[in-house]
Amino acid sequence: MARLTVNGVVREVDAEPDTPLLWVIREQIGLTGTKYGCGIAQCGACTVHVDGAAVRACSLPLSAIETGQKIVTIEGLAPGMDHPVQQAWAELDVPQCGFCQPGMIMASAALLAQTPRPSEEQIRAEITNICRCGTYNRVLAGIKLAAERGQSG
């Protein structure tokens, strides 16, 4: 049994130590907002926060999580969906199919936490998640909008 703190709740999980955090979150804990897209840390659909940093959970084994580390998934990002990134996404109708968006939102939220006013170059360099529907320009606009809101609010 391993103990994980996910979205503020301590969970006991029964999984082999080499099980990727993604599948622990999806299958043991039952939070399916975090997506499987590639399994090799290429696409970012599985992005979660570990102690505030964006990580690709598909390539992080359960054994690599240290006791007390705080894991946040899309379900736990903000109560009532009131994170500035989620708000900007709603305002700009960013998602198309939406499958990559939990990862996009988590990556964007982590970027803004670290760099509240990122330049366009920084956004383009830091947000490397794959979207096949092609929402990139709205993602870019959404991050800029969330950054503005974060400053004024």
Partner: peptide, 12 residues
């Protein structure tokens, strides 16, 4: 169909 895609509740 936007909102459920923002908090992980959209079921695929």
């Amino acid at each position: 169909d936007t909102l459920p895609k923002l908090d992980g509740s959209q079921v695929y």
